[in-house]
Design a protein around this nucleic acid. Structure first.
Lengths: 195, 195
DNA sequence: GTCTATAGGACGATAGAC
DNA sequence: GTCTATCGTCCTATAGAC
């Protein structure tokens, strides 16, 4: 970064969000200073306030964008059709999507507590919307007699927790490919809901 | 707290750990100051340093105590016997133990990144030890032909993630009792590993 | 064992020059 | 659009009185 001054609004904004996402995920929201984010981007701390009114809003924007991406990506990926096929699609989609953006997933689970009440409610609503996508599949399958679930709401939460857990251990270049992980989890999920 | 001075080493130490656990879980390690912890206990910030050399060690002691408790409690609770019975015991134990101390569970998953390398390695080793307890059960059942698991290590991690997820949604006095939650999760786990 | 006081520095956010 | 400089506040950790 030899350049010292200039006008770069179109690239600086995304670079700030990228840097904040990485640093927040690595060290925690409270542990990261605006000065650190600015240093990562290559600007001075004051310049960040051209792109966000304050630190919390920067966090909120990251979480909001992640949840919007998640919902849009699933709605585009949903294969439709029979509940078993849709469930398999969901399992493989969730693992793949989350492994592609581990920092955003981690932030979404860990830093909600740093949001004010209104921002918190907005993210929670998006999360519940996503959960409902899966719950609908389970309830359809239950009604059709292909799944046997005493409680579809709890099954929804249990499956999502299990799938999201992949992010805590998966490492690129490890023993298993992403596709192999999808196979293993689909095997367990399929059996766990079977009639 | 009308009292202002005095000698209370036996009660102040535990009270500091209780306050730190609660505040770290609620707001995050980095977001909580030593002054806040001291205020919660009813002493001045400087007095905390009679009980811990620094803030990170205070966090480490909380995480270490939690993992030691977890391992000791399971070893005392393990019913032994056939793999299916042991697995059911593990599922019910894990849910019950974690629901009794949500703050410590949350801290153990979220604040490891605030430890130095040596402290981090110590906690990680204890976690792996706990995982091995479950993996051994799964491998025994696989060998006996009562479980069908393509990958016992991944199944171990998947089951623990699913069970620990209970802490993210369970609320005392809600729709389900703890025992009912145990029933629901055991139903899903049992089927997911079935031969 | 706890207090008061403080050293020495980092924090979020803003003002004004360029 | 970015910089430099700064305000007012808070931080961890320590020193020394009681």
């Amino acid at each position: 970064m030899a350049r010292k001054t200039g006008s770069h609004s179109e690239i600086t904004g995304p670079r700030i969000r990228d840097a904040a996402l990485k640093l927040f995920a690595r060290h925690g929201f409270a542990a990261v200073s605006m000065r650190q984010i600015a240093a990562e981007v290559g600007v001075q701390a004051g310049a960040l306030y051209l792109y966000t009114p304050d630190k919390e809003t920067l966090l909120f924007d990251l979480l909001k964008a992640h949840m919007d991406d998640l919902l849009a990506a699933w709605d585009a990926d949903d294969p439709g059709g029979a509940p078993v096929a849709r469930l398999e699609g969901f399992v493989r989609f969730h693992i793949r999507f989350n492994l592609e953006r581990p920092d955003a997933v981690f932030l979404s689970y860990m830093e909600l507590r740093n949001l004010g009440a209104a921002n918190f409610a907005a993210i929670e609503a998006l999360r519940k919307t996503y959960e409902t996508r899966l719950e609908t599949i389970l309830r359809d399958g239950q009604g059709a007699g292909v799944f046997a679930l005493p409680d579809t709401k709890i099954a929804t939460l249990a499956i999502i927790a299990m799938l999201t857990g992949v992010n805590t251990w998966y490492r690129e270049g490890g023993r298993l490919s992403r596709a192999a992980v999808g196979d293993l989890y689909w095997d367990m999920v399929r059996k766990s809901v079977a009639a």
